[in-house]
Design a protein around this nucleic acid. Structure first.
Lengths: 167, 167
DNA sequence: CTAGGATCTAGAGTCGGCTCTAGGTCAAGC
DNA sequence: GCTTGACCTAGAGCCGACTCTAGATCCTAG
């Protein structure tokens, strides 16, 4: 059983990760790789499947908003090898908290957006307005929060202003 | 009942919206206001409660990732007044789709992050590893998706590599 | 031998969304 | 009268994360 080390060119890695060749060189320059990228004849970069796997993790962490410095820190820890799992755990938990918070924030925003969609639907088709008892998707869940961002209450004056302003 | 038009300075608006005075001027410059900002003596900006309300909407849309050009487009439509509700609805629905997609993406990322947190927890406290039957939070929900981002499968070789690489 | 394409390095450019600076005006309080 | 502080304009600067350029090198195919 010889070691079946996959040898991939930068172009191939770009293809299967979706990153550009530029981004791959940039990531390397930024110290985001765990293993120093090997070089083949002519000084060309040679990647292994492990590199691709690591990049896959990187891509997911990036997509969830982890900034490059944090990603570099994580790469550093992994590069150092076993023994720093507490730190890795801390880093991951922090990121988990960020992502969770972000999802929460987006969900709140989505409440307003849905509300506005409902408002415009009603303006365009007032007859079926009753079908949607309320525009907020889950107003029963917590009217408080909804009100805290001014989501629920109607116009302040006696005359309804532009629906765009009805927060 | 005289018209109780609140007259706010840029500083007051900054205070109650959380935007900086710079950002407020910038937003105005970018055409993000529905009503042209009034000017008081000495050319100073005077804002109304409606402006603050509108800014509140803007902030929520921005927080959910709407780019300034889209926000400007929306402001343009509102400024034009009633009659273009279809366009506003379209715009809002598109944004709703973006936000929903983004939440979905983040939730997927969160799966990996939770998995990694679980891996490191086990490394640090192997005895209670059995408590958490599986690291993925909801693996029964859709193993397929989890696998599609390489979340579930173990090491490829006979020897387990660094847990960081166990995607 | 030559042309094409992939790769290399170092560094400049881009984009979005503010943020800050410079230099000036204005109103209130000591 | 003078200082202080909020405000004004126009425009430069910044940050993150790439993206692109220029000019060179190298491999492969015809």
């Amino acid at each position: 059983m010889a070691e079946v080390t996959t040898n991939l060119s930068i172009g191939q890695v770009a293809e299967r990760t979706g990153l550009s060749v530029h981004a791959l060189r940039f990531y390397e320059h930024e110290g985001l790789f765990v293993n120093p990228v090997r070089r083949g004849p002519g000084g060309r970069r040679v990647y292994s499947q492990d590199d691709v796997d690591w990049l896959t993790v990187c891509i997911i962490l990036r997509a969830s908003g982890m900034p490059l410095p944090a990603l570099r820190r994580y790469a550093d820890l992994v590069r150092q090898g076993a023994g720093n799992e507490e730190e890795r755990l801390t880093l991951m938990r922090e990121h988990q908290a960020h992502v969770t918070a972000q999802i929460g924030r987006l969900a709140e925003c989505l409440d307003l957006i849905r509300f506005k969609v409902g408002v415009y639907e009603d303006v365009l088709d007032p007859d079926s307005a009753g079908d949607r008892q309320c525009h907020a998707a889950s107003p029963s869940a917590n009217d408080e929060d909804a009100n805290s961002i001014g989501l629920i209450d109607g116009p302040r004056g006696p005359m309804a202003p532009d629906p765009a302003l009805s927060l």
